[in-house]
């Protein structure tokens, strides 16, 4: 949380070709919506399919995290990540 200084510097001054802007929010928003849906579907739906959907929706952020971590450590030279 403390690396703000260098990061902003790098991103504003660095000229490396990979530093083109990317869409920041689609993934976080998708994960947030999935979590919200998962939290509510079990609460409001109570049983059956709604419970299963809740479990699935809440697992996805965890699965995505694990995939990102595996990618990063399998190919240490690349940046990992999904886009």
């Amino acid at each position: 949380m403390n690396a703000l200084g260098p990061e902003t510097r790098q991103s504003s001054f660095a000229a490396s070709p990979s530093r083109t802007p990317v869409a920041v929010w689609p993934w976080p928003i998708a994960l947030g919506l999935l979590t919200t849906f998962g939290l509510l579907s079990a609460l409001l739906g109570q049983h059956g399919i709604w419970l299963a959907l809740s479990w699935a929706a809440l697992s996805l952020p965890l699965i995505v995290t694990v995939i990102c971590l595996i990618r990063a450590w399998r190919r240490p030279s690349s940046k990992g990540g999904l886009s």
């Binding site: 802007p21 990317v22 920041v24 689609p26 990540g81 999904l82």
Partner: peptide, 11 residues
């Protein structure tokens, strides 16, 4: 994250 794809972990 302006210039990093989502989920990047620079190792």
């Amino acid at each position: 994250m302006k210039r990093l794809p989502f989920g990047s972990v620079r190792t």
